[in-house]
Design a protein around this nucleic acid. Sequence first.
DNA 1: TAGATTGTTACCTT
DNA 2: AAAGGTAACAATCT
Length: 261
Amino acid sequence: MPELPEVAYQKKYADATILHKKIVNVETGDKKLFQSSKSEFEETLKNNQFTGSERLGKYLFLNLEKHGVLVVHFGMTGRLEYYQHEELPKYAQLTLTFEDHSRVSFTCPRKFGKLYLAESLIEFQKRNGLGIDALALQKVEFLEILKSKTGTIKALLMNQKQIAGIGNLYADEILFQVKIHPATKVNELSEKDKLNIYDKIEEVLEVVKKVREEGQKLPESYITTVRKKGANCPRNEGKIEQIKVSGRTTYFCPNCQEEKS
DNA sequence: TAGATTGTTACCTT
DNA sequence: AAAGGTAACAATCT
């Protein structure tokens, strides 16, 4: 599920389903997901309730009436499922039953998700060194982050300690939209390039966030819609290629996104 | 079937 | 010291 736009959708989903209801039962799954002891989760959540939610990057914060906040990281396959029936969904790792008998499960087939207990969003952000949320990022902050960096622009966009919220998919999308080769070194970018990248970060994330929240389709001009080796470029100027950049599989159009020399 | 998949991070090298 | 690249994690799909 999980880059910034998908987590924004999970926040909307949580807001519509699980706020202001007393939690009467807590069931936990594989302990590798739980970043505090499972008994601590059980004790903290039982007889408590969610009062609201916040999002930072790819993390969802479910604020509790007492004892701080439940923090959810969705890994690659995590999601919230709200339902009224008895049987647990497949891959349920945390299941809360509310006073009205409805339930919510955090499901996570690949178990890359993580659950934390924290005092607050700010405390969690500091403790984990998370950067500024990509949609709250100011132009000057972005330019400051780019200073004296030597790695690839793609790796920087995905570095959660610098900018929080962009992953492999939308890093590729941003660089496709701005027509910059993903392996370009940050120190080789012109000032114009940098400003264009900043604008596309905001544009792409806003567009995809809205698409996810409203259940719409991505624009046909997006490489994400044809993310496959040999596919036709949405601009019809070439064939999509697949390479590795900073260890991650990367899709781009060599025709639109020329390599700097 | 080998390699791919939206996540992070420990561990290497420079 | 710090920054950047890589492999590993788990389960499934093509």
